[in-house]
Amino acid sequence: MLTFLTRRLLSAAGTVLLASVLVFAAVQLLPGDVATQVLGQDATPEAVAALRDQLDLNRPAVLRFAEWLAGAVRGDFGTSLVSGEPVSGALWLHLRNTLLIAAATVAVAVTSSIVLGVVAGLYRDRWPDTLISSLTLAGMSVPEFVVATLLVMALSISVPVLPAVVLDGASAPVADLLPAVVLPTVALSVVMTAYIVRMTRTSVIDVMASEFVTTARLKGLGAWRVVVRHALPSALLPTLNVIAMNVAWLVGGVVVVENVFNYPGIGKLMLESVHSRDLPVLQAVAVVGAAVYVLCNLAADLAAMALNPRLRTGERSTR
């Protein structure tokens, strides 16, 4: 089991490394001359040369990547082209703010989707299922920025109890940001719940039809016990991966939602850096996003081990 964990950790680190290579390549190598890209076609040769110097573009890409990586490992993602300050300071602040939304969303979406999914699965083809499944389908069909826009319209403008637009800066204390977290969380939860509910429902239906659940029923056990003790652990297993994937999706989803609410999170930082072509920031955000994704998958794997004794006792490795 320990070797399994080590192997899993190494492969996670490898994935993040490879992802940062891809991001680095996309940002630095694809467009030909970065400096011209950043400054635009009609920049003066002097300005281009100065930027090339600042970005170290005259040295081989491999070397630059190695240096960047060495810095990134220590938490140093270089210097922002716009503010001239270290990228990491702004990055961690915005990441903290985004994690507020993400944590709240995960808590809300995972709980509600598991409850709804299990209910829909158990009442398959009856009205609770029909209702939940229809809502789910609606949730999947509406993009998160629409949900966000509608929320702004319905709640902040007609019933102004919650801030529709956040006016705090990135460095505002957490307590000040808390009211602003509510609406983005609701918008993201709606969409995320929709996806997880579907998985939970299918998985519950599969497991409830399995032989071991039938056996438990035929043992004369109560319905609650059959569901909670026998069915749920197996039913949640496939759901875990979907949850992990959705948490990773969150990192992307917040870009849009934060933009709607003007929330100072990582999505907004990303968007600003795209507009201002602040490549070091862009690169850092993308790599941090990849790291979050990998961590989520790792967490899902660990949770799977907790639920599945077959993995825990280490008879077979996954995949």
Binding site: G14, T15, V16, L18, A19, V21, L22, V23, A26, V27, L30, P31, Q37, A248, W249, V251, G252, G253, V255, V256, M270, L271, V274, R277, L282, V285, A286, G289, A290, A291, Y293, V294
Partner: peptide, 23 residues
Amino acid sequence: MRVLDAVLAIPPILALLVVVTVL
């Protein structure tokens, strides 16, 4: 699968924004 894992690791919107920024 290795390469795919790495590509999948980058959130789609971020990846798109990076590509759109540079291209």
